[in-house]
Write a protein that binds this DNA or RNA. Structure first.
Length: 459
RNA sequence: UCCUGCGUAGCUCAGCGGUAGAGCGGGUGACUGUUAAUCACUAGGUCGUUGGUUCGAAACCAACCGCAGGAGCCA
């Protein structure tokens, strides 16, 4: 009878020895003696490896086991016993070993640490490293927690389109989608657009999300978005995932509360469910990580209006490279000062001057500011951007005219203000930025399995 | 797009005007309940590319290419 496969995670958490278990995984390191070998196997179920003792009497020892190199895939059946050595509680004594595939001599992953830049060039192998195994386990858990958060609150998950014909926000920097021939693929109609008009990869599902909120009340999207910005920073990628809730009968205040709750929920969830992985980040990636995460869990976030933020910055006495000026966007260094120096915790800045924000944000009664908000976190800066949406038809139309947007192209969006318009609000949370925040990983390219940035789309 | 820095062995780096080095990784052997094992031996390089300066360039200069960091834009 074939013994059922056990994952390494389960074996290491065993409460008692077991006469017959089977593991399948990849060799992380091997140390040979005269009479036996220590082989450490990892199967990705957790950070730790299981140590296997393979005695020289095991069949094919000299021909199969001795030539094994780091990276080889093997399967071991044997006994789970308490370890005689220090460093691990459990280990396996092999009875039989199957080599699925040895690794060539030039397997690039060493037992020693590699830097992130090199590992990025071998994205197909880096999940086999300790660091990236941890990162992508946490990424999976975080995605799960996002759905859990919203589902518990009865939000409806909407799959907004990835190909879109509306250029949301007039952002401009989009990828165009077309066929190789540029047309429908039909020779006679070769000059026609496949979709009848220019189409793009979405930069946001917000506008479509609003239409669903105006029917199902509370909705959220969670999917890939694309920006053709020629950005070269540690916080930008051409393809990234975004979470965008949208709520009908909702104002900015409730919007900010939801954003704060979400960030806090995700931090708590990861602290609870990814403890081992976080420990590695705290040790090797970001020494201050655990302190920061506990801080976020314990304390409440701060809120300041844009006007107050500008005053704080002016009174700070700090010499910024770019001067603080009412009416201008806050610079990265300003945001960093607020969240890292002044408040030393996540901060929500709200009510921005209308001139620096897009057409769909709701005009406040002061006629100068809009009900917009940015949630800033230490180390990363903006992690959430959101607003209450302009639900008044005349004002929305005025904004569109001001920004040079054609009403015909947004007819369906404008319709929402004609048929049962309601106050509504939402925000976008950058999934990868959240992941960077909870792991301490400094570069967005290292929290995406196969990152796409200008000049790089390998794999 | 702008600004700065860096490209030397598979990896991490030293060499900074006199002709190629170390550690790790690989190979071979020894030894050991080992655990980033240890010890010995060994293979491995158009010093990013092109051009220039020089008796001589990995080193100095220029252009280009690539990468990284910062800015802007944002999530």
């Amino acid at each position: 009878m074939i013994t059922k496969r056990s994952m390494v995670k389960a074996l290491l958490a065993a409460e008692e020895p077991s006469p017959r278990v089977r593991v399948q995984g990849w060799v992380r390191t091997k140390r040979d003696s005269k009479a036996f070998s220590f082989v450490e196997i990892n199967d990705g179920s957790c950070l730790a490896n299981i140590q296997v003792i393979v005695d020289a009497t095991v069949p094919d020892y000299e021909t199969s086991i001795l030539p094994l190199r780091t990276g080889a895939s093997i399967e071991v059946e044997g006994e789970l016993v308490e370890s005689q050595g220090k460093g691990q509680k459990w280990e396996m004594v092999a009875k039989s070993v199957i080599i699925h595939g040895n690794a060539d001599e030039d397997y690039p992953l060493q037992k020693k640490g590699h830097n992130a830049e090199f590992l990025r060039s071998i994205s197909h192998l880096r999940p086999r490293s300790n660091l990236f195994g941890c990162v992508f386990r946490v990424r999976s858990r975080l995605a799960y927690a996002v759905h859990q958060f919203f589902q518990q609150k009865d939000f409806v998950n909407v799959h907004t389109p990835i190909i879109t014909a509306s250029d949301c926000e007039g952002a401009g920097e989009m990828f165009q989608v077309k066929t190789l021939s540029g047309g429908t693929g039909d020779n006679e109609k070769g000059s026609e657009e496949f979709f009848g008009k220019p189409a793009f990869l979405t930069v946001s599902g917000q506008l479509e999300g609003e239409t669903f909120a105006c029917a199902l009340s509370n909705i959220y999207t969670f999917g890939p978005t694309f920006r053709a910005e020629n950005s070269h920073t540690t916080r930008h990628a051409s393809e990234f995932w975004m979470i965008e809730p949208e709520m009908a009968f909702c104002d900015l205040d409730a919007d900010m509360t939801l954003a704060e709750e979400l960030v806090k929920y995700l931090v708590c969830d990861v602290l609870e469910n990814c403890a081992e992985d976080l420990e590695l980040f705290g040790k090797f990636v970001d020494k201050g990580l655990m302190e920061r995460l506990h801080f976020v869990r314990e304390r409440s976030f701060e809120r300041v209006t844009y006007t107050e933020a500008v005053e704080l910055l002016e009174k700070s006495g700090v010499k910024f490279e770019f001067p603080v000026e009412y009416g201008a966007n806050l610079q990265s260094e300003h945001e960093r000062y607020l969240t890292e120096q002044h408040f030393k915790c996540p901060v929500t800045v709200y009510n921005y001057p209308k001139e620096i924000k897009p057409f769909y944000m709701r005009l406040n009664d002061d006629d100068k500011t809009v009900a917009a908000m940015d949630l800033l976190v230490p180390g990363i800066g903006e992690i959430v951007g959101g607003s209450q949406r302009e639900e008044r038809l005349d004002i929305l139309k005025g904004n569109m005219e001001r920004d040079g947007l054609k009403e015909e192209e947004y007819w369906w969006y404008v319709d929402l203000r004609r048929y049962g318009s309601v106050p509504h609000a939402g925000f976008g949370l950058g999934f990868e930025r959240m992941l960077m925040f909870v792991t301490g990983v400094a570069n967005i390219r290292d929290v995406i399995p196969f990152p796409r940035v200008p000049g790089w789309a390998e794999f």
